[in-house]
Amino acid sequence: MVANGVPAVRFEDVSRLFGDVRAVDRVSFDVADGEFFSMLGPSGSGKTTCLRLIAGFEQPSSGHVQVHGINVEGVPPYERDVNTVFQDYALFPHMSVGENVEYGLMIRKVPKPERKKRAEEMLDLVKLSGLYARKPSQLSGGQRQRVALARALINHPRVLLLDEPLGALDLKLRESMQAELKSIQRQIGITFVYVTHDQGEALAMSDRLAVFNHGRIEQIGSPAEVYDHPKSVFVAGFVGQTNLIERELALRFGGTAGTYAIRPERIRIEPLTAPLSPGLAAVEGRIGGITYLGSTSRVLVAVDGGEIVVVETNLEGGTAMPDRQPGTPVRLVVDRKHIQSVAA
């Protein structure tokens, strides 16, 4: 993954202020060369501003942004070896698809025949062969998205920045584009920095991801690290669903005071009559409501001191079992290693 010691992107204590608002607040991180790195967070969390700092549309108020080891403060976007796929695609409406794709080459005065050849190769890569002469207005949303990708990739940037590129697509298309983006990234081997507010997307695609909140990074790590070991209440709640366990319930579940996060799918529902296995934490409660979600069901269990969500895979029987009826007393058990202590 890491080709050499120099990171593709490095943020050193970077802040960006808009008036009194700290859009980005003393952020530091490295993106390794060739990595698929996601910046995940709710809107206004500073992730897009970080992307724009790399692209050069914004300048840091303090700190340093490096691209491949070079400080880029004061370097305008057109002198940076990075390209961006914009959220709204930002295709040039007066140019054909081909002219859009070869725009970067035209600016660098590459002769027309070579330009056209490379644009067609790029269109092949993003599976838009034969659409060279179309206008962007004649394309579907998914196709425009691919044109934007081809247009950014034709310059062979060392870092590709993607600003919520799949945000405007419907669910099915988004899922297939996720897989395709990932495979394109592997194929061409350049660094992707990907901004999204969709935690599922970040988990599915990234080598590593940074979770942003209020202009700061709450946690950086691999998808599994961030999901299984969220460091803060915010991360636990934003990345996936979670049960936050506090106060007396925490004492019964975790043994000590504090705040704990337990993923709903880690909890098992047992009848009270089942023998209690050692090493497992357990509390008793009653089934509240059940929401059928197709492959899974979401079961609310009322316990003393709160309510716990359990997600069960709908194997044969599943929610139809008699002990899943509302009001049934049950025992919730969870392996202690899945009880994650989080900072408030």
Binding site: F57, P77, Y78, N83, D88, A90, L91, I107, A152, N155
Partner: peptide
């Protein structure tokens, strides 16, 4: 003319004068 289109032109290597000629003026 959306701002992002003008930014995209710069992002793809066009200097402000080229962006003006290639993107803003035609639009």
């Amino acid at each position: 003319v959306p701002n992002s289109v003008i930014e995209a032109s710069g992002d793809l290597g066009a200097r402000p004068r080229q962006t003006f000629r290639q993107v803003i003026l035609p639009l």
